[in-house]
């Protein structure tokens, strides 16, 4: 939905210092631009549970990390998320790719569609779905607004970014 330059512009505006990530076929398209961004460090991990813990360490040290993973990684990384966001109440922010959301009409049956939103609700996270590719500027502004709102409130947040082709 977004391009690499758009994402880099957004993250730069937000003051993100580190993107802690495992790519998928959508998020991975942004990798070269994120790596090229002077003010952002690209930090690839091997499993999504690591991402929350690395981001927690970065936050404790004064950095402004962003966790960027697919929704399947959200499912995988529950215990690490629980520990960082709830045991220690760290206000980490994540951008999570919502696999197949924009392909529901042509490629139905991906169980990510059944579980992603209920899992986010179960965690009680402040999450917002961004699924309007026809309004890219507005979507980017909305993510920025959500990020600032979560940071000011001192709570974690998730920007759920629709993936797939409409």
């Amino acid at each position: 939905m977004f391009t690499g330059p758009q994402i880099v512009s957004l993250l730069t505006e937000l003051g993100i210092t580190h993107v802690v990530t495992i790519p998928d076929s959508t998020l991975g398209q942004w990798e070269d631009d994120i790596r090229a961004a002077a003010a952002i460090s690209y930090l690839g991990v091997c499993r999504e549970g690591e991402a929350w813990a690395v981001a927690a360490g970065l936050y404790l040290g004064g950095a402004r990390p962003l966790v960027m993973i697919q929704c399947t990684g959200l499912f995988e990384s529950g215990d690490s998320l629980r520990n960082a966001l709830f045991d220690y109440q760290l206000p980490l922010f994540a951008m999570i790719g919502y696999r197949s959301f924009l392909s529901q009409a042509t490629l139905p049956g991906d169980t990510c569609l059944a579980f992603t939103e209920p899992v986010l609700d179960a965690w009680g996270l402040d999450w917002v779905l961004y699924d309007r590719p026809e309004d890219l500027p507005g979507q980017l502004e909305a993510i920025a607004g959500q990020y600032h709102r979560c940071q000011e409130a001192g709570v974690p947040g998730v920007a759920l970014v629709a993936e797939g082709r409409a």
């Binding site: 813990a53 927690a56 040290g61």
Partner: peptide, 19 residues
Amino acid sequence: VPSSMGQAPSLGLGMALAQ
């Protein structure tokens, strides 16, 4: 403590990179 078992090296990595 409390921990997410297994994540101590990752947490420490983030700390080391931040400072």
